[in-house]
């Protein structure tokens, strides 16, 4: 147990509290750091120090793949194929895996299964996409909504461009949703290679749309404690998937109690991770959700 007496604003005895779980990864120079103890962390909520405990992340976790599959993104099928290939090679046995795709609507193809091969086989068996719309915001909103009802630890792996063409939900809706639901999102942004090739020929509005799409995926990841990668080459998606699986395997679970306010106000979270070696503090980078509401 860690307590920072000076700045602590712990819930008073008898106050209504709720227990919050934070899932985080710690890294240094791109290397994931495991084996840290409670003494290596410091947690603040809205600037106030919080007492916390480290617990084993729930296993099995519920991991859902959400893959863009529209006629507009059919040029990037190779990126997706490499991503799934990476999952097949590095996926962790014992977790629950699901597969959903989206274009003009969300389609769930494989509900949670422990048979990892079922995910890749199912995707391989999908026919060619029919629609050219990419309703990314709607699909992510809906997946977050579905996953938020599940017990335990949940992770959403988004493989897509991040472009949205015709959603009913807007960016702000998705932002609020990701803040409200405790789901770690990892994103693999597809289409970077083609984007690089055609960038000089694109209109400024087209370039802006792609920049926004990339920023959207980054926002999802940073708000939820995951990461977003945009490999330039298809083969890089294999490594991205390996990285995602390693991150899931090395997640820490930080649990603390906090007072219920019922206002829906966003509570900002900050977690520091460090190690003291020879009286010298070594700081680590922490990937954790920005906060919650």
């Amino acid at each position: 147990m860690i307590a920072d007496e000076a700045a602590s604003q712990e819930p008073a005895a008898g106050a209504k509290t709720e227990t919050v779980s934070l899932y985080l990864n710690v890294e240094k120079n791109g290397q994931l750091i495991s084996g840290l103890l409670p003494g290596n962390f410091r947690l603040t909520e809205d600037g106030h120090s919080r007492t916390f405990r480290l617990e084993q992340p729930e296993e099995p976790a519920s991991i859902a793949f959400l893959i863009e599959q529209s006629t507009s993104s059919s040029y990037f099928l190779e990126d997706i194929a490499y991503a799934l290939n990476g999952f097949e090679a590095h996926g962790i046995d014992g977790h629950w895996y699901a597969l959903a795709t989206y274009s003009n609507m969300l389609e769930i193809h494989t509900d949670f299964t422990k048979q990892r091969a079922a995910i890749t086989q199912q995707f391989a068996a999908l026919g060619p996409p029919t629609w050219n719309e990419i309703d990314t915001y709607d699909a992510i909103y809906e997946m977050l909504d579905k996953m938020s009802r599940l017990p335990g630890r949940h992770i959403l792996v988004v493989v897509g461009t991040g472009v949205d063409t015709f959603s009913e939900h807007n960016l702000d809706d998705v932002k609020k949703k990701i803040e409200a639901d405790n789901i770690t999102v990892f994103a693999a942004g597809i289409g970077s290679m083609l984007r690089g090739v055609y960038d000089p020929y694109m209109s400024s509005s087209g370039q802006m749309q792609l920049i926004q799409a990339q920023a959207f995926l980054q926002m999802l990841a940073s708000k939820s404690g995951g990461f977003a990668w945009f490999p330039k080459m298809s083969v890089g998606f294999h490594d991205v998937m390996e990285g995602i699986m390693q991150s899931i395997a090395t997640q820490y679970r930080m649990v603390y109690d906090t007072r219920i306010r019922g206002t829906g106000k966003f509570r900002k979270i900050k977690v520091e991770a460090f190690r003291v070696v020879n009286d010298k503090r070594e700081n680590f980078k922490v990937l954790v959700r920005e906060g919650w509401r």
Partner: peptide
């Protein structure tokens, strides 16, 4: 046993 603990995206609304 598995179906008891199995999460589901198609599952009934929790709670």
């Amino acid at each position: 046993e598995e179906s008891k603990d199995k999460p589901s995206l198609l599952a009934p609304e929790q709670g």
